[in-house]
Design a protein around this nucleic acid. Structure first.
Lengths: 351, 351
DNA sequence: GTGAAAGCGCTAACAG
DNA sequence: CTGTTAGCGCTTTCAC
């Protein structure tokens, strides 16, 4: 089972390993006949150079690591697809590091992020992309932030839609504040005045941004935000159901439109509304954020803010690639504009 | 920017690199005071041993590669989550190789599979998991199969829910034939006699198996399969819409129930039915296969065959781990039983 | 307990 | 054009 090496090839071809290396890498001219002889041997043994040895010398592995909280959340596969598309043609391979937020203690998640950060650097990845997890914290602990900053000195890191205090990181973000404004304005434009906001976590910066955009738009239109209509609790379909259910159970006036922190919550909200005997959008309008594929598949199709996930991934990959290849003038911050996608879940309020 | 090595640590600690290595790996007793001195230096410099160099010697990398066709299809993240959970605690890291079937020529996909297979072996992964792509072909070309067999001699491969001719591979599969029978029987038990089957590709083995189970159950119940009600075309929501639309547009009798090749097609079918003014399940029952999260979120919630994706992933990881650690007696074939999940999209036919 | 030295498989000067 | 020779950073005998 001993695998063949450049030495085996060299010996059988009656050349030195250097020459074999030369044909392998096209790094210097080799006589056609010699090259052919070597190539034949390579084919014969299906020889594949050991990338470990190669990387050990070259100090580049062509591997990049991506740390994300939950591959099961459809948002992440979308940006992953973008990353992959872009990175593949640049010759990178991906380490997928899922910190499995969905089924565990939050503390474990951060612990696992640290762990992966360590593994990735040991494995000498050329770069790291982080999305979700600690970088989404509105107030990330100094320790956790510093750890990342420290690693960033040795290997380039790009943060997607997040940030960390205490140091400057390369980041690719979507302007969610402006996006949330647009969503809210769409609703206001439709004639809604009683608008609720549900989902997300107050300690997460994405939630803070989305809520800020919501408030700004409401204020600009001279509408009051009813604080009892602003409820957080998570980003899942189930949380959406609960939050919407609670909104509907309340005494007194009901909102005619609900801005949800993301699509999953939006979907949950629709389910809850339907279960309560309401019709969307006739009785209540619902919006999401992300524009995951599911958003277009739900009935009614969800009006949402497209975070342009795929584009986000591609951009991050591009920035990271620049960093790795030490191009200069790489922007610290790259901002993408989200896009309002109007579908079927929003309409003017009844009467 | 030069990174610190065992030599740097050794020099500063006044010991040899061997001793440093010993404390790093706990591979031999080291005097407590010496160990402490070294450990302090390690902490001081945040020294991390270079995994490339280590793997070069150890001939094990702790990396496993997973080749899949489209991370964007919710089925795959689910099994990935299972893989990850199981593999993480065994100390593996994942290479994610998405061959991007969703937006390209099928030929390109297979080419990319080959490419990734090559990259993974060069990078000396300890094992490879394949799911989707060529291993789902009902009749896979000899060349493409042989390529995988060849690699399998050098590094262990586990196929999930697929197979390849010409050699014996370690596989983890779900009994889809029995599963499709169960789904069909559920419908028949509800009183349906006019049942259609839509979705999938006739050249893919999963489609063949699901259709076979469908036919078996129909036959056993003495029901005829109307061939004009068996239509293939893909696994996406859009194909489901189209196929269902075509079924509904047909002259004459309409099916009262539709067995879909997977959940996405099922969701598309529901959309088409609703668009055509029908109500599900009152006017037509719809079933899926996979049990992706979305299946439970659609309205009405989709009755489906759970392929137990997460469990599938875990099992595959376990088998691969056994293979890597050269346990003997590893079963060539591991079969999981799928599970019928009855939700809201099926009901007795309207009189 | 600890050190010296020989590699793991490859690339990259440096000579010729 | 091609061969020789150092390493890349680490682990691992084999001595002491």
């Amino acid at each position: 089972m001993k695998s063949v090496t450049v030495y085996d090839i060299a010996k059988e071809a009656n050349v030195s390993v250097a020459t074999v290396s030369r044909v392998l890498n096209n790094t210097a001219p080799v006589k056609a006949s010699t090259r052919q002889r070597i190539q034949n041997l390579i084919d014969k043994y299906q020889f594949q150079p050991n990338a470990l040895a190669r990387s050990l010398i070259k100090k580049a592995t062509g591997m990049i690591g991506i740390i994300l909280p939950d591959i099961t959340n459809p948002f992440f596969p979308e940006v992953l697809a973008g990353l992959e598309q872009e990175a593949r043609q640049a010759g990178y391979t991906f380490f997928l590091c899922d910190t499995g937020s969905s089924n565990q203690d939050i503390k474990d998640q951060y612990r696992r992020e640290s762990q992966y950060l360590g593994i990735l650097t040991e494995k000498q990845v050329d770069g790291i992309i982080m999305i979700g997890g600690r970088i989404d914290l509105h107030h990330c602990g100094k320790e956790m932030a510093k750890e990342v900053a420290e690693i960033n000195k040795r290997v380039p890191i790009v943060l997607i839609n997040g940030n960390l205090p205490g140091a400057a990181f390369h980041r690719v973000v979507v302007d969610e504040i402006a996006g949330a404004e647009r969503v809210t304005e769409h609703l206001i434009g439709l004639g809604h005045r009683d608008i609720a906001f549900i989902g997300g976590y107050p300690q997460m910066s994405n939630t803070v941004r989305r809520l800020e955009g919501f408030r700004t738009a409401m204020e600009r239109a001279g509408l009051a935000v009813r604080e009892e209509w602003v409820n957080h609790g998570g980003f899942s379909v189930n949380r959406g159901k609960e939050l919407m259910g609670r909104l509907l159970d309340r005494e007194g006036r009901r909102p005619t439109a609900v801005v949800c922190a993301n699509d999953l919550v939006g979907i949950g909200a629709i389910k809850a509304a339907v279960k309560a005997g309401l019709e969307v959008p006739r009785d209540v309008s619902v919006t999401g954020v992300d524009d995951v594929p599911m958003a277009a598949n739900i009935i009614p199709e969800l009006t949402t803010l497209s975070l342009r996930c795929v584009e986000l991934g591609r951009t991050a990959a591009r920035v990271l690639h620049q960093l790795i290849s030490k191009s200069d003038g790489v922007e610290l911050l790259t901002t993408l504009q989200p896009e309002l996608v109007v579908r079927e879940s929003t309409a003017p309020p009844a009467k």
